[in-house]
């Protein structure tokens, strides 16, 4: 699995949403999006749900780690850094 890292912690709204959507859109099934953010990006998660992608949201020390993959049988828990 190839990791597409998006560290959005210092980006202003709406750049994190724009970037993550465009990554998500053109991502292949061998890749997964790893986003680090200071907020829980609810719209992004909703879209992942709607598209039936696998996703994982973890809050660690007030930093959000969001993993999204188009692969359905993938254990994202193994890929999260925290």
């Amino acid at each position: 699995m190839k990791k597409i890292l998006l560290d959005a912690r210092e980006m202003e709204h709406p750049i994190p949403l724009q970037l993550s959507l465009s990554y998500l859109q053109s991502m292949s099934s061998g890749e997964f999006l790893y986003m680090i953010h200071r907020k829980n990006p609810i719209p992004l998660i909703e879209i992942a749900k709607e598209k039936k992608y696998s996703y994982l949201v973890k809050n660690h020390n007030d930093i959000w780690h969001i993993l999204i993959s188009k692969e359905s049988d993938i254990n994202l828990e193994d890929l999260v850094d925290v």
């Binding site: 210092e10 980006m11 202003e12 709204h13 200071r38 907020k39």
Partner: peptide, 8 residues
């Protein structure tokens, strides 16, 4: 929510 989100 928005102070952090809009203004980093």
């Amino acid at each position: 929510q928005v102070i952090e989100m809009f203004f980093v």
